[in-house]
Design a protein around this nucleic acid. Structure first.
Lengths: 149, 149
DNA sequence: CGATTCGTAACTAACTAAGTTACATGAGAC
DNA sequence: GTCTCATGTAACTTAGTTAGTTACGAATCG
């Protein structure tokens, strides 16, 4: 799994899970989809379990399944559950007491707050169901064109 | 200079430059403000020179100055000139041919495009002059409160 | 009980970005 | 003209982050 692709990789995994709602997928299988290691998968989506987006079970027939219907899982929730901000620029003070720095940080923090609100708003309108629908559309297109040829 | 603080550090530097419009500041001085190395400063703001945001001159009395008035320099330009995206999540394909991945990437790229447009729009309304005004307000406040005490 | 699968800690490897050194280039002081 | 100061830039080092890996305990089911 490439760096900075946790969101994209996680969505990939979740669409596969949405596409196989009747059975649990193992970390091993999920890892195969994104060409990585089962442990990396478990570590990456651990936060989604705590958020109720997915459930996991152990032992025979165990693995991962969606915690609720795909149309009730938004990208905003997924992104938040991954625990990484979309806007990773730092505004930590490095020169405590410097008024210039304080002014810069104040303005940037304001901007970040507003930006995160905006982004979350946009992401909350995209659901996992939208992604699976997009996938099925692509799948049908290929099928049709293959048939036509 | 801390990681991911290039935007904040650059703004810090630029406010100092705006505050001393009558002379050029050396990389050495600028580096002092953000506790780093002159070479790091030159490297970081090299892009700003190409964008006309700052000018640099060599030799005696040389150094860095703003390329135009602070109220005509927006944070959007600065951010763009730094050459780093505000939204660094990756959408590079890792499994070419996988339709699930293609659907995920398509949706994320759409989102990114819209998000970048929104963020740039917000940033284009904040100028370096706003930052220096904020700084001066803080400066005056300290002065007043010191006087009061 | 034995096979399977997750949970998690601990370690390794790869990658990124800041920091540093070194030196060439250009510009003004004298 | 040359001395000094300052940028421009390449090359290397160091530090920090994150993915990848190994190992093993815990839970579940046949």
């Amino acid at each position: 799994m490439r760096r900075n692709s946790r969101l994209s990789s996680t969505l990939h995994i979740l669409v596969h899970m949405a596409d196989a709602p009747d059975r649990a997928l193992t970390s091993e299988e999920l890892a195969g989809f994104i060409h990585t290691n089962p442990v990396v998968v478990r570590r990456t989506i651990a936060g989604l379990r705590e958020a109720g987006i997915v459930t996991s079970s152990r032992g025979h027939g165990g693995g991962w399944q969606l915690g609720r219907a795909p149309d009730r899982i938004s990208l905003a929730e997924i992104s938040a559950a991954l625990g990484e901000t979309l806007l990773p620029f730092s505004t930590e003070p490095e020169s405590p007491g410097c008024l210039v720095e304080q002014a810069v940080i104040a303005v940037l923090d304001d901007f970040r707050l507003e930006a995160e609100r905006l982004l979350a708003e946009r992401l909350s309108h995209i659901t996992l169901a939208d992604l699976t629908a997009d996938f099925r559309r692509r799948y049908d297109l290929i099928g049709v064109s293959s048939h036509a040829v």
